[in-house]
């Protein structure tokens, strides 16, 4: 069972489609009732997609509450919410709000399995994680050439964050990344 938390995201249903292609047992739940739904549905995987304009407090709460019960993937502002739950600082991003960039990935990470070390990706946001103050709980698994954080993995839990949008037309390998995440077993 996979749950996608709908943070009033503009892109939640693109993600829903990509997940649904691989796993038909998927539900989109509204952020307000998400915790009750997740408690009831007991999903194996939780997606926290890009939210509308701000990282959501509920999303941060979900990340902590289910850290040892489900694999969690935060995307865009959803990634910021996940990282914020573990103490990361959020700062204004530099550069245009819509960007396409080459991302260096740690392709040994299971979420990037089968991908080349450099991938094209698109992202849409005005905020980013302050790398200098990154909590020790996270490994960096993706970044731009200029050093902006693009992917993180929690050291103790199967919790991931991507600052780019795997569901975007600007991320050709996005479908594979989603499938890799869904294929994660019980490893940490």
């Amino acid at each position: 069972m996979v749950v996608i938390v709908d943070n009033s995201s503009c892109f939640a249903y693109s993600l829903y489609q990509l997940v649904g292609e691989a796993e038909a047992n998927v539900a989109v739940v509204g952020a307000n009732e998400a915790i009750g739904c997740i408690d009831r549905l007991e999903p194996t995987h939780i997606f926290i997609p890009h939210s509308s304009v701000e990282p959501s407090i509920v999303s941060a709460e979900i990340a902590k509450r289910y850290e040892s019960k489900a694999k969690i993937l935060g995307i865009g502002l959803g990634c910021l919410a996940v990282c914020h739950a573990y103490g990361a600082s959020i700062i204004s991003a530099k550069g245009p709000t819509s960007q396409r960039a080459e991302i260096h990935i740690a392709n040994a990470s299971p979420i990037f399995k089968g991908l080349a070390p450099l991938i094209q990706a698109g992202f849409y946001h005005t905020k980013e994680i302050d790398r200098i103050a990154l909590p020790e709980a996270f490994h960096v698994i993706a970044e731009t050439a200029s050093g902006s954080l693009m992917g993180l993995k929690h050291k103790d839990y199967p919790t991931f964050g991507l600052m780019f949008q795997p569901e975007s037309i600007l991320t050709p390998n996005g479908r594979q990344i989603i499938r890799n995440f869904l294929a994660l077993g019980d490893e940490k």
Partner: peptide, 15 residues
Amino acid sequence: LKHDLFVDIALSDIG
């Protein structure tokens, strides 16, 4: 890029 943003929105709307 502005165009592709609207493509992504449309993908989600139709999705």
